[in-house]
């Protein structure tokens, strides 16, 4: 299998995994919107925006999951995934420095994870998004090079 072929398949696999993660957590949040909002209201710094965030986050997750499947926007979707996961992870780390008891504002069974495992899961998906950015860019550069020669 060629170098390009492996990377193309891995990018598809990463898109698949990120789609499952985002759709799963978005649907879980929307199904329990009241609970999600209640938890956000108890999070430090962001509680005044709980109502807005409770709609924006699942919406963004669904949009990113959708655009991951359009080759034209795939790199942008990987960037968006990386930024969204990065913001959430940074926020968790900052908050945990000041408070050791905050309710998890995540969706589905992920909320049953401890904070350390949650950070680990986020970092794993951030690495997938980062590899997705690098490899889609590489593919794009290779295609551009082939078109010009």
């Amino acid at each position: 299998m060629s170098f390009k072929g492996i990377h193309s398949k891995l990018v598809t696999l990463f898109s698949l995994l990120l789609t499952i993660l985002f759709v799963y957590t978005a649907v879980s949040k929307l199904v329990h919107l009241d609970l999600f909002q209640w938890r956000l209201e108890r999070m430090p710094y962001i509680s005044p925006y709980a109502s807005l965030i409770s709609w924006v986050v699942p919406f963004l997750e669904l949009v990113i999951a959708g655009i991951l499947w359009f080759p034209k926007y795939q790199t942008m979707a990987f960037y968006a995934s990386f930024i969204l996961l990065g913001l959430f992870t940074t926020y968790i780390i900052i908050v945990l420095k000041y408070s050791d008891s905050i309710p998890c504002s995540c969706g589905g069974v992920i909320s049953a994870l401890g904070w350390k495992h949650h950070i680990l899961l986020n970092i794993t998906f951030m690495v997938l998004a980062l590899l997705g950015i690098l490899w889609t860019k590489k593919q794009y550069n290779m295609q551009s090079h082939q078109n010009t020669t």
Binding site: S15, L16, T19, V23, V31, A65, G108, S111
Partner: peptide, 25 residues
């Protein structure tokens, strides 16, 4: 075929999982 089936499969799986685990959480 894969470009259509894979995202559809991922979305269905995720939605199914979200509802399947809902009762367990």
């Amino acid at each position: 075929f894969l470009k259509l089936v894979l995202p559809a499969f991922a979305i269905l799986l995720a939605v199914g999982l979200a509802f399947a685990t809902e009762e367990k959480v």
